[in-house]
Write a protein that binds this DNA or RNA. Sequence first.
DNA 1: GCTTGATTTGAACGCTCGTTCAGTTACCCA
DNA 2: TGGGTAACTGAACGAGCGTTCAAATCAAGC
Lengths: 189, 189
Amino acid sequence: MARKTGSHSDITRPRIQAAALRLFAQHGYAAVSMRQIAAEVGVQAGAIYNYVPHKQALLFELLKTHMEDLLVANAEAVSGSGPKALDDFVRFHILYHLERVDLVFISYMELRALEPDNFAEIERLRRAYEDRLEAILDGMDLSDTKLATLALIAMLTGVTNWFREEGRLSPDDVAETYVAMARRLAGAA
Amino acid sequence: MARKTGSHSDITRPRIQAAALRLFAQHGYAAVSMRQIAAEVGVQAGAIYNYVPHKQALLFELLKTHMEDLLVANAEAVSGSGPKALDDFVRFHILYHLERVDLVFISYMELRALEPDNFAEIERLRRAYEDRLEAILDGMDLSDTKLATLALIAMLTGVTNWFREEGRLSPDDVAETYVAMARRLAGAA
DNA sequence: GCTTGATTTGAACGCTCGTTCAGTTACCCA
DNA sequence: TGGGTAACTGAACGAGCGTTCAAATCAAGC
């Protein structure tokens, strides 16, 4: 019988993931050692291998879960098409990403650290997300929907690079300013 | 007397920089070894230390030179303010960056691999570049010039992430589409 | 052709890496 | 209370890391 209550695995596993996420975001996948992650959890390096087959899986699991969660949350928050849907998408993207800056960071930074199969899987999910925005823009007056999609995604995601909690603007302030800019960019002002 | 013509240093130094640039962009600074760089140049690892004091300097020199060149080129290509200057800035940024995708990539990716002093220096240069765009936008009708600056820079730089030489659009095509989007975003359509 | 000094080699330094595994510990269940 | 097993330790593996340096090599100037 597996131990239930009090089992350390219920505690250690998420702590390993959290430590890996934090350290990967701060130093980069290649620059972080299994021993560093273990030290942050308060455990020896070998213990990590009770939960993850290898370092690469640690990164892949973080990215895969993130992209899947992102797609689900987006589907809940944004529906339909037209200007209203665009507003919703912009707000959703900025607020969701600002709550997960570390995940966003490694999702864009560490793709090259993924082995080909893992990379392809994450790319597939990223494309699916982009397609959701493209579908919204499709109904609007744009000369090149695909380019507008890519331009908007880059512009929105860029927020996570400079936003500071202590800054002059709240996440909601930023979101509303970006909603206005996105509308104009999409010719829906 | 130092050897002049035929001196290997004239050849080896730029080759080391080129190899470092390519490999850093492809695998990331931390994931690339001095031996890999040396192998690409066709030399032993020790030889690199005739030209660079340590690995960190290799990265820093690439980034510093890139940012300085960028500022000089931008000053030549873009002047004045108002909508015309914005058009010029957008065209310049996209076309200049598309010719240097590897440099752009590591300039945004490997900042965290820099030691604090080096990081501060690169940040200073990056700010100076942003300030040039902000000055242009300042004269225009925008509710938040700073945010528009950051949004535009992210949107423009994002092009280097998806642009493919074999794609349906030429760099000029992309630049013109982005000029139109930037105008609308800035309320200058 | 010899000398000189720039350039490169190749081996070595101490260290850290990802991963494995026999052995120990700690807790649940009967 | 004792047996069983999940969880973890701690040491070890071979490999590769950044960097150093004496020795070898090479080309230019006399």
